[in-house]
Amino acid sequence: MFHALVSIKQVPDTTNIRIDPETNNLIRQGVPTILNPYDAHAVAAAVEWKRKLGGKVTIITMGPPAAVTSLRECIEMGADRAILISARQFAGADTWATSYVLSEVVKEIHAKDPIDLVFFGKQAIDGDTAQVGPGVAVRLDLPVVSYAVKIREVNLEKRYVIIERKTESRNEVIKTTLPAALTCEKDIAEIPFASLPDLVYSLRYEPEVWTAESPITFEPALLGLKGSPTTVFKTGTPDKHTAGEVIKTADMGVDGAVKVALEKILGVEGMVSMLGVQK
């Protein structure tokens, strides 16, 4: 039996974030939260392999009570069990403190119900750090394959997995021992349409809630803001640039505007020879 665990995060939908032009502050009000897109694909992949091999998918998240919505979404996609790890002490965690909590949780689940594969998204779109997956894997001493685009084979008898991952210049096909961890690109699996039974089940599903004391007693000094080696020193808004010349085809015609623009471009040092033209 295959047991996959997927670590997910609920994030603000950053496409909808706006900045207050007066105060330069983030306007968070009314910003919807969503299941981190990469994590959704990771859940889809885990469910796909559960259906192939037989077994189950467990979902975990560390976050506020509202993250229940994202957990239900995973159940709707076909996951079997969901755990919300939630307590005030966890607030303000950086990736190091987050990976501490998540790794302890994975360990606890694994002790009772051995896990074959631990899935992460490539990165969470609020912070874009891509550090939590490798961090948890290192703490658990699991082999980690990041930027996975395809799971080619999961062999539960011979205890290996073959995963295709993306690097800067090429794709690599990696074979590694189980249990293993992977961080997923969107290519890993298509998001499935929910089946009616899964949909109905998800509506009344209540995730288990784990706290800072139970069932795991976490080391308080390692949690949240206190347990985070990095701190935010200051925040600001990006530098403003100054606009250059603006010309309109309506004023000088298309050819006229293009001529003006090309002349300016060719005036840049080295451009004439780079483009192989004569000025």
Binding site: W96, G127, A130, G133, P134, V138, S146, Y147, E168, P229
Partner: peptide, 23 residues
């Protein structure tokens, strides 16, 4: 902050137990 670099840095920071600022 390449695919390889982020994979490596995240793991190294965790195994040493220090902070890492990404990207």
């Amino acid at each position: 902050a390449t695919t390889l670099g982020r994979d490596l840095a995240g793991a190294v920071a965790t195994s040493i137990g220090t902070g890492l600022t990404a990207d």
